[in-house]
């Protein structure tokens, strides 16, 4: 494997660039339902920002920021948001993921309730895709050991 080395230029540029990449990922998720983009693309961008951190620093430092337990919890949280919104629609008397039924519990009319519902779905998909991309990278680059990787 490649030996670990500290490069102040790479680490400083990564530290300055990371908040903007993550802000862009959140923008893509939040505007996914009325412009190009969406939960999947925004989640991939958020995951790529964390992968950049893993490459610029090392895996131990990255796992101190986001442990494997937290990663797995994010992975399940997105799925719970997705299926929870679907089941709430089912309980309110519509079909699975029929967002217009959400106007019974949200203070908006049925047309706006559709927009709010798909926003919740995008947020759930984004969280799950981000967590799965981070988990895939960490397991692939260190062959499951989580000790050292591309640095």
């Amino acid at each position: 494997m490649i030996a670990h080395f500290e490069d102040v230029i790479i680490q400083t540029v990564c530290r300055i660039l990371l908040p903007f990449i993550q802000l862009y990922g959140l923008y893509v998720i939040a505007h996914g339902h009325h412009s190009p983009g969406g939960g999947f693309q925004g989640g991939v961008i958020l995951g790529a920002s964390f992968i950049l951190f893993c490459v610029a620093y090392d895996i131990k430092e990255a796992k101190r920021r986001m442990s494997e337990k937290l990663d797995t919890m994010f992975c399940s949280l997105g799925l719970i948001i997705y299926s929870g919104i679907g089941i709430i629609c089912l309980v309110l008397g519509g079909n699975y993921l029929n967002y217009s039924r959400l106007h019974h519990i949200l203070p908006v009319n049925p047309i706006d309730a559709r927009s709010m519902g798909i926003l919740g779905i995008e947020i759930g998909v984004g969280i799950t895709v981000m967590a799965v991309m981070i988990s895939l990278f960490l397991n692939l680059v260190s062959s499951g050991e989580h000790e050292e990787g591309l640095q």
Partner: peptide
């Protein structure tokens, strides 16, 4: 544009990193 966005983020971004990680193994 939506497919192009997916291709840019997944195809050119993430999958290249995954391929390089697999090559180093």
């Amino acid at each position: 544009v939506d497919v192009a966005f997916t291709e840019a983020s997944v195809g050119a971004g993430i999958s290249t990193v995954f391929f390089i990680a697999a090559v180093f193994q």
